Simulated assay, not measured.
Amino acid sequence: MTLHLTVDNWAVQKADARAVRFDVFVIEQKIPVELEWDDMDEHCLHAVAYNEAGHAIGTGRLLPDGHIGRMAVRAAGRGQGVGAAILQALMEKARQRGDTAVVLNAQTQAEAFYSRHGFSRDGDEFYEAGIAHICMRHVFG
């Protein structure tokens, strides 16, 4: 799959990032819509990945404090490196701005994915929106 990936502010990325997040989190994972949206989007860098047809198929965000979150890939894009490309782009933006580490709250089913990208478990399992998560950290070296 040929990907085009952009990283920009919420004003630029909002429509496509929201659409992906709505499909993955609200429709597919049944997370209540009021839990999906918060006031942090406006303060984050957002990555959006597009397939060769120009359709948004994945997204993620980098918060000012070095947290990566709202990683989502539509079903049609899974297993094709979309999530990895988004994660690497956000990690690179964090490195460029001088962050020494990035942290994320991973759904436990995604722990192996994040481990492959150098993240380590940091703490005990907890629940967010009824889904088991773990905190994971990657320190830039």
Rank of each mutant, 00 (worst) to 15 (best):
L3F: 15
H4G: 01
L5M: 04
T6Y: 08
V7C: 11
D8N: 15
N9S: 12
N9Q: 06
A11C: 02
V12D: 07
Q13S: 14
Q13Y: 00
Q13H: 03
K14T: 00
K14A: 15
K14L: 02
A17T: 07
A17K: 02
R18H: 10
R21M: 10
F22D: 09
V24E: 07
V26Q: 04
V26A: 10
I27L: 14
E28S: 04
E28K: 02
E28A: 09
Q29I: 05
Q29F: 06
K30W: 00
K30G: 00
E36R: 03
W37C: 07
D39F: 04
D39E: 15
M40E: 14
D41L: 02
E42P: 00
H43Q: 13
H46D: 11
A47N: 07
A49L: 12
N51W: 10
N51V: 06
E52G: 04
A53M: 11
H55L: 13
H55A: 14
G58W: 12
T59N: 07
R61G: 10
L62K: 08
L62C: 05
D65M: 04
D65E: 15
D65H: 08
D65T: 01
G66I: 03
H67L: 01
I68G: 09
I68W: 04
I68K: 02
R70D: 10
A72R: 10
A72E: 08
A72C: 08
R74D: 07
G81W: 11
G81Q: 11
G83M: 10
G83C: 08
A84Q: 14
Q88G: 01
A89H: 05
M91S: 09
E92L: 13
A94G: 06
A94N: 12
A94L: 12
R95N: 03
Q96E: 15
G98T: 09
G98I: 09
T100D: 13
V102A: 05
V103D: 00
Q107S: 05
T108C: 14
A110C: 05
E111Q: 15
A112F: 06
R116T: 06
H117Y: 13
F119S: 04
S120R: 14
R121W: 01
R121F: 01
G123N: 04
E125N: 08
E128D: 15
E128R: 01
G130P: 05
I131L: 11
C135A: 11
R137G: 02
R137V: 10
H138N: 13
H138S: 12
H138C: 15
V139Q: 08
G141S: 15
